[in-house]
Amino acid sequence: MENFNYHRPATVLAAAAMLKKSKDGKYMGGGHTLLPTMKQGLASPTDIIDLTAIKNFGGIKLSKTMVTIKAGTTHMEVATSKEIKKAIPALAEMAGKIGGVHVRHKGTIGGSIANADPAADYPSACLGLGATIETNKRKIEADKFFTGMFETALKAGEIITAVHFPIPKKSAHQKFPNPASRYALTGVFLSQDAKGKVRVGVTGAAASAFRATDIEAALAKDFSAKSASSVKIAAKGLMSDMHATAAYRAHLVSVLAGRAVAAAK
């Protein structure tokens, strides 16, 4: 791993200024994607701006209709939050399935979403719940946030500060983990709001997380496990690699969506 200048700002404003001043700087949350990438020689930033010392950068807030998770909140904090377990149990469950305990102790929601790994779990929850991503500059709807493989709507230097999740009537998360890495080979996050609107977020299957609109349409007519699992997803455009073919992933999407409907609460 190449050497770099290390900074530990106390405010979001100072962090943004430091990044602007650096030649090729990177923010760091839990470092559990950034550091492995640097160790592999796939990234060599000139500066690391560690966000973890920023005051109030982490934390969970609840209103009647919304769960707000600040960017620096770790996966473990989300997985064990009593409030989230009550308001959106599937979200806490999902966070508890990210990596192993050590990854959950360090990895943050902001880092996960900014990184937009095609196999990461949070993107499916953001799409499946219709979240809004807040940055130091603006608010972005999840539907417009994940734009490609490791690509997001974030502009250079923009810092995620919080993610707002509307509380649904029912939700569920189903994940088929890659047994070696624990990332999602395919994962589905499903919700139904008070008006009956269904959202199905899918991760791991394509270059970027997406909404399974065919399954959403089928569930709008008939909210049953069978209705979801009988939708045939096209394999074209899905990922194919040593772990699974595109056809296998396509099959997993409807199978997991069916299981999610059955498990939704």
Binding site: G31, L35, D50, H102, H105, K106
Partner: peptide, 9 residues
Amino acid sequence: KAIKSCTTL
């Protein structure tokens, strides 16, 4: 907290 010291500066 248990963490991976190979992935911590």
